[in-house]
């Protein structure tokens, strides 16, 4: 059975965690930067996605730090999370390439540069 593709928000969260473990606010900032300001995660959405990703074994809690008297929980991507992210990135890349070829954008861009 085909595996369900990741939602855009989940994809961005995994991408944000691929570089280094992050805490909640760090993930919100990173996804905002990765999406060029298009995706602002709601806090409820972020923690719902983290709950699902933890349950699926794609993300796990890394450590807790105390920052200005408040606890910050860091999350990190697991090996299976990294494999899933790579597979999803390749799938999205193939689809994007196909769409650009079909619409002629890639060919026109090639002609312009020549």
């Amino acid at each position: 059975m085909a595996r369900r593709s990741l939602s855009e928000q989940t994809f961005l969260i995994l991408t944000a965690l691929a570089a280094e473990p992050l805490h909640g606010y760090g993930i919100v900032q990173s996804t905002l930067a990765l999406s060029d300001g298009e995706v602002t995660l709601k806090v409820g959405t972020l923690y719902g996605a983290l709950d699902r990703l933890c349950a699926d074994g794609l993300v796990e809690p890394d450590r807790e730090e105390t920052h200005q008297g408040r606890a910050r929980r860091y999350y990190r991507i697991t090996d299976s999370g990294m494999a899933r992210l790579v597979a999803e990135a390749k799938r999205r890349s193939r689809q994007a390439d196909a769409a650009l070829r079909r619409t002629g954008v890639v060919a026109r861009a090639g002609e312009a540069s020549a």
């Binding site: 805490h23 909640g24 606010y25 919100v28 602002t40 709601k42 806090v43 409820g44 959405t45 972020l46 923690y47 719902g48 709950d51 408040r70 606890a71 910050r72 929980r73």
Partner: peptide
Amino acid sequence: ADEMVEVHRATGARVGPGEVAATLRL
């Protein structure tokens, strides 16, 4: 809860309909 409040405070966003809907879904 403490962690979520901290993140929400850091984003500086107000509690709008989108946040209410996301929390209810959660």
